[in-house]
């Protein structure tokens, strides 16, 4: 799966997956503090089998977002998630301190 998808591809995929009858959720970075690796507005699209496209954190929290997204697809209720990007992870990707991100997850319906 492409990791360098542009925002175009991500939102197109969200539309195409939904039209194909899949359960689909869209995650969006709505706020960041500190050195968050992906800017506000970044998207991740997830289908009901856990396939995903895009990125909200450069890999740190995608797993957790995908798990929560499966819940959102089932319940239909949007959720806001907050993550602290661990200092160690932040250091590995070349950031001097940890960051915090808030991610809004909603069902495409």
């Amino acid at each position: 799966m492409a990791t360098l998808a542009t925002d175009d591809d991500i939102l197109k995929a969200a539309e195409d997956w939904r039209k194909a009858g899949k359960g689909v959720a869209l995650a969006t970075v709505v706020e960041t503090w500190g050195s968050a690796p992906r800017p506000v507005g970044s998207n991740l699209v997830i289908d009901d089998e856990g396939n995903f496209l895009g990125s909200v954190s450069g890999g740190c929290v995608e797993g957790a977002v995908v798990t929560e997204a499966l819940d959102v697809i089932e319940s239909g209720k949007p959720k806001t998630l907050e993550f602290g990007v661990a200092d160690e992870t932040a250091w590995k990707v070349g950031l001097s301190c940890g960051g915090t991100i808030r991610v809004y997850v909603e069902k495409v319906e």
Binding site: E15, K19, V108
Partner: peptide, 26 residues
């Protein structure tokens, strides 16, 4: 996001026009 909103948004992007999605998180 309603599929209608997503469709319109993608159509605006294809046509190279700016668009903003306004979401009330609460």
């Amino acid at each position: 996001m309603k599929l209608d909103i997503l469709k319109s948004l993608n159509a605006e992007r294809d046509a190279r026009r700016a668009a903003v999605v306004v979401t009330n998180e609460a």
